[in-house]
Amino acid sequence: MKHFLKLFVLLLAIFAVWIGLLEASVVPQGYALLLPVYMVVVLGCYGILMVGVGLMFFPTCPHEAELLQKDIVEAKEFLKKKGVDVGL
């Protein structure tokens, strides 16, 4: 099954539950009507939280940049010795 169909089915299920809540009036209807709004807010919060957490723990590697510079010097020396034109 295509992936977006799965999400669509999930959305449909949530919609059905919502209609059920509205009809059954287990919770006051004023609250039940606002549930989709809460859901969108929660989804937005989840997204922002995930991006925030990702940013906070963004893996960096300054040491690798130094190592690369050493490798570049090493490579240039070797290639120059072998007569490859590395522009130096």
């Binding site: 995930m50 991006v51 990702g54 940013l55 963004f58 893996p59 960096t60 590697c61 300054p62 690798e64 940049a65």
Partner: peptide, 16 residues
């Protein structure tokens, strides 16, 4: 793993 040489904007876009 990791990335070097990205500014905050680039990291933000990537995470988003």
């Amino acid at each position: 793993g990791g990335v070097h040489g990205w500014n905050l904007m680039r990291k933000l876009t990537s995470r988003g």
